[in-house]
Design a protein around this nucleic acid. Structure first.
Length: 814
RNA sequence: GCUGAUGUGGCGAAAUUGGUAUACGCACAGCACUCAAAAUGCUGCGGGAAACCAUGUGGGUUCGAGUCCCACCAUCAGCACCA
């Protein structure tokens, strides 16, 4: 049968019946954990992005099992989240209904793709058998002191009476009603990821991840060394404001101190006559996002509080201001301002006529202010003349004697806010008792089930709060009437441990059997978009480390190697989106050409890590290519050749190309370079077609080469190759074949092209053996006309010879 | 604004990581087969008559730069409640 959708169906059915892709968990000596980020079942059907991620990754997993690994390749669904809830608000269809339906469709489509997942190891995060463990992890973190509650700002829409996700805030306004969004504080749960800041940063060093991703994570963690300095509040008995600075050498230049407007202390420190102005400013700040506030382009604004603080190094009295360029959550939320040596502070001081005191000057000459480099201290009393580096040490030494300062490390990383005032998520397993306070739900009572009949349209309260049945319960400690926590968990919590649950996904007794998980972890290759470089990937690393410290896993780092697939954009070069109307559905292509043609095309037409705008012109190339293979298969099967048994020059060439192809494809697939792997396979076919047109061929060699070729493309075109494999009389699946071995000797004995240059300009190319020496090469070129011509009246200064690479003659005309 | 990328023929893209720039294809053109077309097979295909010139622009390092360094231009992604 010629390749078509029917061939896909035929083999999908057979694979299922024969249990070809059942994972053998009993033998993990040579395991390979190949993982893609599980998908969010937002729409009913797989989109192009799914194909671009999952199809090549499936080919990669197949390739690894051909190399003799026992490959663990699971797939699941990240099924909680905002879109399903919004969809429900719009259509009235319950999130559970739409989500489960989407999952069913996506599963079927993944099977139609030909993916070799073993669905016995899948997870669906919205099901109680999964979120029971999400809740269990929350309890464990709570026990360990890694989950805690504090006040934190949220986006609040006054008119809708609801909390908004950042995504729902458009230009500072609510996407639904256009009301200006405010920041409002609410009491919320956090995970203490900052306890792991140092280890998360250190651990990056040994990971086989793209450098750019490691950099982004390192910046996200944002380690900076500096000092904490305490400024005494004037008029108080023993109250201080603590500022973090990386430039404690400039401490004598502090002319004012700034605190974040949203801080609780702000109102406390504001003198009555300034209260009106400060309150107004706070209201204004509530409307700006953090990104806006941190922009250095933005005009600085602020107001005076009327209070003063004391600089501990020199006893100077400096004014206390409020400004939105200081953010409560970063550092200590207090900035010591040194306008002479910081651009933001300088701009601010100029605008509000604050003092500017120069305390650092360059080693030689004078500087224009603000001067932000290191230098020599001036106007700093006993520290004058010291370098910035020396001064940093001396100043901290002095401050620490009076307990007014110390050396410290600050991280940009903030604790992970996990509370969501939403319906479609895992309920936080906490009970509030009027007598006992915060009481965790006992483990035996898990899961805390998400009630089905809940009004989740926004009206000012967390949806769960409206379910009396859900909210009212007995305190597990004292059995008095109590109330449940009404918030649900961030979906990033669900996705921060799913890869640990996969290996033992059906365990109902415990989260997993440690012995199994320790054998399968870590993930050997993790494939997913680079948009997850910070949040998901850092949360998953944190969770693994926290679980390790609690003794549930051994591994320190969950993802040994990380690969990011690129993004397929719309044909217009923009990100695909329904609103732009530039989405492309894979289904019509798959229907028309079959899964393998489509898979091969997306692998061949794009660089896997780059992606790019969608184009389908090249799909014909793959149709033609596969037909060419089928035609050759037919001719070999019909065997009308005049045959011979000897190995002559032509046969040697074919053997060489075969070995070269195996080697190249192996290296390419290992690096996720599917486009070049397919290019090499095309060269191999071209060579075989050329060979078979000779008057007399070695039919046995041709047939063997062709069968080798089929095994080479079997991970890339799993149905197509299976069909031809069967035509060649094989009764076992081609997917049980091992990756062919190549013979390095056969490659090495083939001659190479060696470029000959004069002054770096290519003059000619000669054929030589690989072990040719400089003398051999000189001998070989001595009669080549272009060289002879170029070397006339030429004074040779140097000869650069790099074996197997280049011969370059350097000199000049006399 | 901050952070991280990307830029190579008409087009999709390669370049063993500093060593023949444009592999493999698409599109196009020519030839063969055919009454004809399609399909298939073969050949050609950056510019230039040539010396040479070409990897976003301008400098630099090097025997040698698409690859390394500096500056600039353009485009894209992430920025903590989309996942």
């Amino acid at each position: 049968m010629r390749y078509s959708k029917e061939v896909d169906r035929k083999w999908q059915k057979r694979w299922k019946e024969s249990g070809l892709y059942k994972f053998d968990i009993s033998n993990l000596d040579k395991k390979f954990y190949s993982l893609e980020m599980f998908s969010y079942p937002s729409g009913a059907r797989l989109h192009l992005g799914h194909w671009f991620n999952f199809a090549p990754s499936d080919s990669f997993a197949r390739f690894k099992s051909m190399q003799g690994y026992n490959v663990f390749h699971p797939m699941g669904f990240d099924a909680f989240g905002l879109p399903a809830e919004n969809y429900a608000i719009k259509t009235g269809i319950h999130p559970e209904e739409s989500t489960l339906k989407n999952i069913e469709t996506m599963k079927r489509q993944l099977e139609e793709m030909g993916a070799n997942y073993d669905w016995n190891y899948s997870v669906e995060t919205c099901m109680p058998d999964y979120y029971k463990w999400t809740q269990w992890i929350f309890l464990k973190l709570f026990e360990k002191g890694l989950a805690y509650k504090k006040e934190a700002p949220v986006n609040w829409c006054k008119s809708c009476n609801t909390v908004l996700a950042n995504e729902q805030v458009v230009n500072g306004e609510c996407e639904r009603c256009g009301t200006i969004v405010e920041r409002r504080k609410m009491s919320q749960w956090f995970f203490k990821i900052t306890d792991y800041a140092e280890e998360l940063l250190e651990g990056l060093k040994d990971l086989d991840w793209p450098e750019s991703t490691k950099k982004v994570q390192a910046n996200w963690i944002g380690r900076s060394e500096g000092a904490e300095v305490k400024f005494k509040i004037e008029g108080s008995k023993d109250e201080y404001l603590t500022a973090f600075t990386t430039r404690v050498d400039t401490l004598n230049g502090v002319t004012y101190v700034v605190i974040a407007p949203e801080s609780d202390i702000t109102l406390k420190l504001t003198k009555p006559e300034y209260l009106d102005a400060v309150n107004k400013y706070r209201e204004q700040t509530a409307k700006a996002s953090d990104i806006e506030r941190m922009s250095t382009e933005r005009e600085k604004t602020g107001v005076f509080t009327g209070s003063y603080v004391i600089n501990p190094i020199n006893g100077e009295r400096v004014p206390l201001w409020v400004s939105d360029y200081v953010i409560e959550g970063y550092g200590t939320g207090v900035v010591m301002a040194v306008p002479a040596h910081d651009e933001r502070d300088y701009e601010f001081a100029k605008k509000y006529n604050l003092k500017i005191k120069e305390v650092i000057k360059p080693v030689d000459g004078n500087a224009e202010l603000p001067y932000t480099d290191y230098g020599i201290l001036i106007n700093s009393g006993e520290f004058n003349g010291l370098t910035s580096a020396e001064a940093k040490k001396k100043i901290v030494e002095k401050l620490s004697k009076t307990n007014e300062g110390k050396q410290t490390v600050n991280y940009r990383l903030k604790d992970w806010l996990v509370s969501r005032q939403r319906y479609w998520g895992a309920p936080i397993p906490i009970i509030y008792c009027p007598d006992c306070g915060i009481v965790p739900v006992p483990e035996k009572d898990l899961p805390v089930l998400l009630p089905h009949d809940v009004e989740f349209r926004p009206d000012g309260e967390s949806p769960l709060r409206k379910s009396k049945e859900f909210m009212h319960c007995k305190c597990p400690k004292c059995n008095k009437d109590a109330m449940r926590e009404s918030d649900t968990l961030d979906t990033f919590v669900d996705s921060s441990f799913y890869f640990l649950r996969y290996p033992d996904a059906r365990n109902s007794e415990k989260i997993w059997d440690k012995e199994i998980v320790d054998k399968i972890m870590p993930v050997d290759v993790y494939v997913g978009g680079k948009e997850h470089a910070t949040m998901h990937l850092i949360y998953a690393r944190f969770m693994t480390k926290a679980l390790r410290d609690m003794g549930y896993v051994d591994c320190d780092e969950p993802f040994k190697k990380m690969v990011h697939q690129g993004m397929i954009l719309g044909p217009d070069g923009n990100k695909m989106s329904k609103s732009k109307g530039n989405t492309v559905a894979p289904d019509p292509y798959v229907d028309k050409y079959g899964s393998d043609t489509f898979r091969m095309y997306i692998m061949f037409g794009f660089s896997f890590t780059e992606g790019g705008p969608w184009k389908d012109e090249g799909i014909q190339a793959i149709v033609k290519y596969l037909t060419r293979v089928e035609n050759l298969a037919d001719r070999i099967l019909n065997n009308k050749y005049k045959t011979k048994n000897t190995i002559d020059d032509e046969e040697k060439e074919l053997i060489y190309v075969k070995n070269r192809t195996i080697k190249a494809m192996e290296a390419d697939i290992d690096r996720f370079q599917f486009n070049t792997a397919i290019a090499r396979s095309m060269e191999f076919i071209n060579e075989m077609v050329k060979y078979e047109q000779l008057p007399i061929v070695n039919e046995k060699l041709l047939r063997e080469s062709f069968e080798t070729y089929i095994t080479l493309i079997s991970p890339l075109a799993p149905h197509f190759s299976e069909e031809i494999w069967e035509q060649f009389g094989h009764t076992e699946s081609v997917h049980k074949e091992l990756w062919p071995k190549y013979d390095e000797k056969e490659i090495a004995k083939y001659q190479i092209n060696l470029p000959i240059q004069i002054n770096g300009k290519l003059k000619t190319v000669i054929k030589t053996n690989r072990e040719a020496t400089k003398e051999d090469v000189k001998e070989a070129i001595k009669d080549v006309p272009t060289i002879v011509q170029a070397l006339k009246n030429f004074e040779i200064k140097d000869e650069i010879f790099v074996p197997q690479k280049i011969f370059n003659i350097v000199g000049k005309k006399k």
